[in-house]
């Protein structure tokens, strides 16, 4: 939702901000309710777009929340609940895209960018150091011999 923006907008569907979860929906068992809330936050409200069903008070979002709670109460595990909703609406309904070949680029992209960035940094520093007067190159054997002989001569 929304943020900021303010700007904004004319919304094509009024993003009515309001109470989303309603006390009548809440499951009696706090552990199940917590699971329901967590699942609801991963499912996209289809009529509002970009809002999870947990945040939305659209009617369809409310009915989806009810469905999620009923399935949880009936003993479905999280995976099955999500699978059911996905079987109806497709991957679009997931706010956390599944890891599939189609989303490899999405999920591994940030990591790849970081690695490329670090690689670029490493290359940059290696080239940088090559001619950095601040970091003298190690002495060659010749130089070392000369240095030693100079030191042996002592201060003049």
């Amino acid at each position: 939702m929304k943020l900021r923006l303010l700007l904004i907008l004319w919304t094509w569907l009024a993003a009515a901000p309001a109470l989303a979860v309603d006390p009548r929906e809440v499951l009696a068992d706090p552990a199940l309710e917590a699971r329901a809330r967590a699942l609801s936050q991963e499912l996209r409200c289809l009529v509002c777009q970009n809002q999870s069903i947990d945040d939305s008070d659209a009617d369809l979002a409310r009915d989806l929340r009810k469905l999620v709670r009923e399935r949880i109460a009936a003993g479905d595990d999280d995976r099955r609940v999500i699978d059911y909703v996905v079987s109806r609406y497709g991957d679009f309904v997931l706010l956390r895209p599944r890891l599939t070949p189609a989303t490899y680029l999405l999920w591994f992209g940030p990591l790849a960018i970081v690695l490329l960035g670090l690689l670029a940094l490493a290359v940059f520093y290696r080239r940088n150091r090559a001619d950095d007067p601040a970091v003298p190159a190690p002495l060659s054997p010749d130089e070392r011999r000369r240095l030693e002989s100079l030191l042996k001569d002592g201060p003049r």
Binding site: M1, K2, L3, R4, L6, I8, P17, L19, N50
Partner: peptide, 23 residues
């Protein structure tokens, strides 16, 4: 910050950042 603060008090569920494309 102003936008996020607005979302926080106006949208009514206490969220302040939603990773919406516009944000």
């Amino acid at each position: 910050a102003l936008g996020s603060w607005w979302a926080y008090y106006e949208l009514g569920w206490g969220g302040w950042w939603y990773w919406d494309p516009v944000e």
